[in-house]
Design a protein around this nucleic acid. Structure first.
Lengths: 222, 222
DNA sequence: CAAATAGTGTCTCTTAGACAGTATTTG
DNA sequence: CAAATACTGTCTAAGAGACACTATTTG
C-alpha cells in the first residue's frame, strides 16, 4: 500500500490542503478602424455597485483547461465565440478577493470587430465596448489586465502581420494596414508598412477588381 | 441573509467547487563564465525513478503568494536564498500529474554563480547544475519550463545591462560583459558591447587599481 | 481628364558591427 | 620595453523613414 503519490514534499497529503479557487479574467480586445483598440466589459452580478462593469471571468471547473474556461466565460457572459486565449499573468495576492482565496489567471483574446459588434448591439444592457485608454477604475486587478493585454497585442502586431489571423483571406495590404492602425492606435505610412510586412505574406496572384484606383494585389497569411 | 458573495456567476457556491492543487515549478538559472547558462536540478522524492532529477517545486500554501512559494521551495529543496521570481506560464492540462488535478505555475529565478556554487558543492547528492542545453528528458513540463526560462532571461539581458542586478557594485564593463556572455552563451565584442550598454549605467568616477593593463572605469546600475 | 488608390525609386539619417588605432597600466 | 587591458575614431553595410514619382483603375 503506497500513499506516497498523494503526499507532497513536506509530507502533507494533497487532499488535506486548503486549495485556492482558480478563476480566469479576460481582456477581449477588438480593433476598430475608427476608434482604435476597444475592450469588452460586462455588467457585474451585483448591479448596485459603483464599479458595475468588469472584464468577463469565471471559475475554473474540474477537468477543464484555462483556455476552455476563458471561452466558456465569453460564451456565458457575452454570447461570444472566442479563440486562442493567451495567458498574461497570475494575480495571487491572498486578499485580492473578499469572497475568499482566489487566484486569477489573466488572459487576452483578440476578436475582429465584425464578430464583436453585433453581439454588443444585441445586449446593450449586459455588454459594452470601451476604448482601452478609457477603461480605468475597473474592479480587482482589471486595470492592470487591460494594460498588459494592450501591450501584448501591440507588440505582437508590431512584429509580424496579423498574428491572430483576424483578416479573412484574401486581403489587400490596405486591409492589413487598417487593422494594424487600429491595433497600434496611430496612422502608419502605406509605403513603409508595405515593405515591413510584404515578405511575411504569400501573394495569391489575384487582384482586386471593380474598386476605385489601381487594383491591389491580394495576399494570404503564411 | 446574503450568500451572494459566495456564489459564482453560474450560481454555484464557491465552497462546493472541486478546486485544483496549485504548484510552482522553478528554473533556477545561473550564468557561469566558463560553462554558460546552467540550470539547477534537485533529486525527486522517489529515487528509484528513471527521471530522478527535476526542477524544484512545491504546492502553494494557504495565505501565500506564488513568489513566496517559489522562495520556500528553493530554501527547502536546495537551501538557496533566491529573489525576484518571474512567472513564465501556467501549465494546466488536467491529466498532466498522475497524483490528481494540479496546476503548475512555472517561474524563473536568476542567481549569481557565487551564490549557487557553494550550495551545490555542499549537497552533491540532492542538488545538481547542468548546462541548459543538456537539461532534457525531465519529468512533467520541465523541459518546456527550462526552454521558456532561457528565452526569457536571454531576451531581458539582450535589452539592458544586468536587469537582475547580479553584479556587485561597483563593476567594470569587463565584469558586465563576462556576465552577459555567460547568459547569451557566446562571445561579445568588447567595443560593440561597451557602446551598447554604457548609456544605461552610471559612472562612479572611480577606476580599478593594481590590475594589469589600463585601469578601467567603475560603474553602478542605474 | 480628374480623382483615387497601388506600388516603386531613391535619398537621408541612424545604427550595428568591424577594424585599427591610441592610452595606460604591470612587471 | 613587452604584454595586457581599456577605450575611441572611423569606415562600411544595412535598415527605417520620408518623399516624390510612376501605374492603373473608376466615373
Amino acid at each position: 500500500m503506497s500513499t506516497t503519490a498523494y503526499r507532497d514534499a513536506s509530507g502533507r497529503r494533497l487532499v488535506d490542503y486548503p486549495r485556492p479557487s482558480v478563476a480566469v479574467d479576460t481582456a477581449v480586445l477588438t480593433p476598430n478602424p475608427s476608434e482604435g483598440l476597444q475592450v469588452l466589459l460586462v455588467r457585474r452580478d451585483s448591479a448596485q455597485r459603483k464599479d458595475a462593469w468588469a472584464l468577463p471571468g469565471t471559475f475554473l471547473h474540474e477537468g477543464e483547461t484555462l483556455a476552455d474556461a476563458v471561452l466558456r466565460s465569453l460564451e456565458q457572459k457575452a454570447g461570444l465565440r472566442g479563440q486562442a486565449p493567451r495567458q498574461l499573468h497570475v494575480f495571487d495576492a491572498p486578499e485580492r478577493d473578499d469572497r475568499g482565496w482566489v487566484l486569477s489567471v489573466a488572459h487576452v483574446v483578440l476578436l475582429a470587430a465584425d464578430v464583436v459588434r453585433p453581439v454588443v448591439a444585441a445586449r446593450p444592457d449586459d455588454v459594452r465596448l470601451r476604448p482601452v485608454e478609457d477603461a480605468t477604475g475597473l474592479p480587482f486587478d482589471h486595470d492592470d489586465i487591460v494594460r498588459m493585454a494592450v501591450a501584448e497585442v501591440r507588440s505582437s502586431y508590431a512584429e509580424r502581420p496579423d498574428p491572430d489571423r483576424l483578416l479573412l483571406e484574401p486581403f489587400t495590404l490596405r486591409d492589413l494596414r487598417r487593422l494594424h492602425e487600429a491595433v497600434a492606435g496611430e496612422r502608419l505610412q502605406p509605403d513603409v508598412f508595405r515593405r515591413h510586412v510584404k515578405d511575411h505574406l504569400v501573394s495569391t496572384g489575384e487582384m482586386t477588381r471593380g474598386s476605385v484606383g489601381r487594383p491591389a494585389e491580394l495576399f494570404r497569411h503564411t
